[in-house]
Nucleic acid binder design. Structure first.
Length: 343
DNA sequence: GGTAGACCTGGACGC
DNA sequence: GCGTCCAGGTCTACC
């Protein structure tokens, strides 16, 4: 086959076949962790709940209903595959042996990614405010193992269509990430991106004008200016967190609202063109964009501190009504479509 | 405080 | 195959 004939679809198809082959090859002999999630946790539902499950280094395997992912450790990265056993426990298989400290780090990263620490009371409180999601049990939103990755993924989703976000994340992993034993790449750490050249980010990762902003953000994480413990401290108000986030380079009102939900703070909407489209097409709102934004705020106000989840699951349910259950979405479809306008 | 235009990439479209 | 247009959120300059 001539290289020029290979489109994005071909690359994606190769990715998944390559990944599955390598995992099958390497999983023998690697560490296996058993994790007891909360009783109401469902891997397929709770992973396929937010678009980041499609972005590298994440890969959802539709046929196996399991998540592929490379986790970063100080020494070297390790690829893992997460599935859920019949008894509800999560099984995490790695492509190499992990020592005790690495196993402990892996548990922390997986717990953050899958929101395993989310209290049952929190989800119950959400369902009391918005009972539409009680039957399906929705309440968790998939995120990254680290806040840094969530922030960079948010920046790569601004001012670009979804396929562009997919490509930027793939290239960030392939160009700046580290290769695991099985050949799959990790998401680059803040330390790594802080010393990456502008030209590499723009020329090879194709992040465009986001290059300087990504490096500045990475430096702020390395220096400790961005403190996740403070951002998730319940005694710190949502207004204070929003004010801090919006002061960061490349983070505006939309990105700030989105990062807040990734921090487990759901009191603000992250309004983008998709939200406005949702307001028009699904909620029947009319008027200028400004009028619709006002109407959206009023519409979700009754959901109080849970309003992002109410909005998001409504949007997600609309996607699923068009394309079927998210855990059955083929990767290529989600990489190209994934907006109500395209589905 | 509100608004216009620049910032980039990649896909769609017309020729 | 080439050129043009468009979508997308943030930032800066200006009123």
């Amino acid at each position: 086959m001539v290289v020029g004939e290979r489109g994005a679809g071909y690359e994606l198809a190769c990715d998944i076949i390559f990944t599955e082959y390598l995992f099958t090859e390497y999983l023998m002999g690697g560490s296996v962790l058993k994790i007891h999630p909360p009783a109401d946790f469902e891997l397929a539902r709770d992973v396929c709940s937010y678009g980041y499950f499609v972005l590298m280094p994440n890969a959802w395997d539709v046929s196996g209903q399991r998540l592929f992912r490379v986790l970063e450790f100080d020494e070297k990265p390790s690829a893992c595959v997460i599935d859920q056993c019949e008894d509800g426990k999560l099984r995490v298989r790695f492509d190499r042996r992990l020592d005790r400290a690495q196993q402990s780090q892996a548990r922390v990263q997986i717990s953050r990614m899958l929101c395993l620490e989310m209290a049952r009371d929190d989800i119950r409180a959400f369902h009391r405010v918005d009972p539409r999601w009680k039957k399906s049990g929705r309440g968790r939103l998939f995120r990254s193992p680290t806040l840094f990755e969530d922030v960079i993924k948010t920046v790569t989703s601004c001012n670009v269509t979804w396929p562009g976000t997919v490509n930027m994340n793939r290239r960030l992993c392939e160009v700046c990430g580290r290769k695991s034993a099985s050949g799959a790449y990790s998401f680059p750490s803040a330390k790594k991106l802080a010393r990456t050249r502008l030209g590499t980010l723009r020329g090879r990762c194709r992040v465009g004008y986001r290059d300087q902003r990504i490096i500045d953000l990475a430096k702020l994480f390395v220096s400790g200016h961005v403190d996740e413990a403070w951002l998730t401290d319940p005694s710190v108000s949502d207004d204070e967190v929003f004010k801090f986030l919006i002061s960061l380079p490349g983070i505006g009102p939309y990105a700030s609202g989105n990062i807040m939900q990734l921090l487990g703070r759901y009191s603000r909407l992250a309004i983008d063109t998709e939200t406005i489209r949702h307001g028009k097409a699904v909620l029947g709102m009319v008027g200028t964009d400004g009028q619709i934004i006002k109407a959206l705020h009023a519409h979700y106000e009754p959901f109080g501190e849970h309003k992002f989840r109410s909005y998001w699951f409504e949007l997600w349910a609309h996607y699923e009504s068009k394309a079927g259950p998210a855990h059955l979405w083929e990767r290529e479809l989600v990489s190209k479509a994934f907006t109500a306008a395209n589905l």
